[in-house]
Amino acid sequence: MTDPRIGIVGIPGKWSTEVLADAVEASTGFRLVVDMAQVQLDMVTGQLCFEGQDLSQLDGLIVKKISAEYSPNTLDRLELLRLAEHAGVRVFSGAENMLRLVNRLSCTVTLRSADIPMPDTLVTESVEAAMAAVQRFGSAVFKPLFSTKARGMCVIEHSEDAAAVRSEVSAFQQHNPMMYIQRKLNLSGRDLGMVFLGGNYLGTYARVSQSDTWNTTIHSGGRYEAFTPADDIIALATRAQAPFNMDFTTVDVALTEDGPIVFEVSAFGGFKGALEGAGIDAAARYSDYVINEFKKR
């Protein structure tokens, strides 16, 4: 068989996109980095084009990053890739699979339906219900339905000053009509990224806070380090990612006094944490996995 022509959907110039493109090119001799902002779908001809290349004529597309930040527009971009799938292009991890994870609420509903332990969570459009959740939780994390690296998240503390709490809640709702609210947990400045390829567990890294910020993300100054989880934690993460049928993903897990809980399953998975924290060359492993999928055909 001839080498498959596999494009990389990502952010041109970004490290994770380019190292994945490097790995695929080294194995196939073909390199194409696709910026979805420049893609056009012609409904008359059925062509999905990027810089003169009809993506529907490729053998495969690996989605490393669909947009720099999550938004409803991210879902629109994934919808475009469904046309490529309909034309026979293998999209990794599957457009509909990723669609279910970009929206935080969709991910949460699936995890809860699978009885995966998560932080106490309330989802509402009611300011009154949100205020009651803040009072019940004592300290609550408000999360946009579309966000990565804790962007747009905030902590609202219970206060006897109801007007002040209402003001904070209302300010958040201005940009987030549907409010996603979780009890703030004491994570001791660490949470875990557990890496999976084709549903198989590869390893774990920890994100460790370097300041007094409430979250551990690298975006907020955290760093990666190695971590070896117990078997029960691996089993939990394995169960959490299973319903989504992802080709590559990371599961965000936190260790609490009451046992491990899952925050979310990633739509795309992190390469840098895997490499720096767990010593996993995710780009090379993912490239090998994808090419082997074509060999199976």
Rank of each mutant, 00 (worst) to 15 (best):
A284K: 14
A206C: 11
A21H: 12
A274V: 02
G203M: 15
G273A: 10
A140Y: 09
L48F: 08
D161T: 10
F263R: 04
N292L: 03
S159Y: 10
Q173M: 12
S126P: 12
N103W: 09
T28N: 10
R297E: 13
I62N: 00
T256I: 00
V169A: 01
S188N: 15
R112L: 14
I181R: 07
V195W: 06
M246V: 03
L187A: 03
G279S: 02
M36I: 05
E18M: 09
P144V: 06
G279A: 02
S106G: 05
R297A: 09
V253S: 08
A171W: 12
V34W: 10
E293P: 01
F172N: 05
E264R: 00
K143F: 14
L145D: 01
D212V: 14
L236H: 03
E157V: 12
M194Q: 13
I66G: 04
R223V: 15
S211R: 15
R190C: 09
Y224A: 05
A240W: 12
L75S: 12
G277I: 03
Y70I: 08
M98W: 04
E18N: 05
E225D: 08
G259Q: 01
Y289R: 04
L105Q: 12
Y201T: 08
R82E: 15
Q173H: 11
A163H: 08
M246G: 00
R190L: 15
V195N: 04
D247Q: 10
A278H: 10
S126Q: 10
M36E: 02
I218F: 13
P243R: 00
A21G: 05
L185I: 08
L111W: 02
V109C: 11
F92T: 11
R77K: 13
L58E: 03
V63H: 02
E96P: 07
F196V: 06
V165P: 03
T124G: 07
S113C: 10
T148K: 14
T28R: 12
A171K: 10
L78D: 04
N215M: 13
L111Q: 09
T213M: 11
Q174F: 11
A162E: 02
V262C: 00
T108E: 00
L80E: 07
K296E: 03
K65H: 06
S93P: 01
P144I: 04
Q53N: 01
F30K: 00
F227A: 02
R77G: 06
D281I: 11
S220K: 11
P229M: 02
F142L: 12
P4T: 01
G277F: 14
P4G: 02
V208N: 07
F30L: 01
T250L: 05
Q53V: 10
Q40K: 15
S167G: 05
T250Q: 02
V251T: 08
P72C: 00
V253H: 11
F268H: 11
L192F: 10
Y286R: 02
E18S: 05
D281M: 15
N292K: 15
D288N: 06
D35N: 15
V265C: 08
V63C: 02
I8C: 01
V109K: 12
E125D: 06
R151M: 08
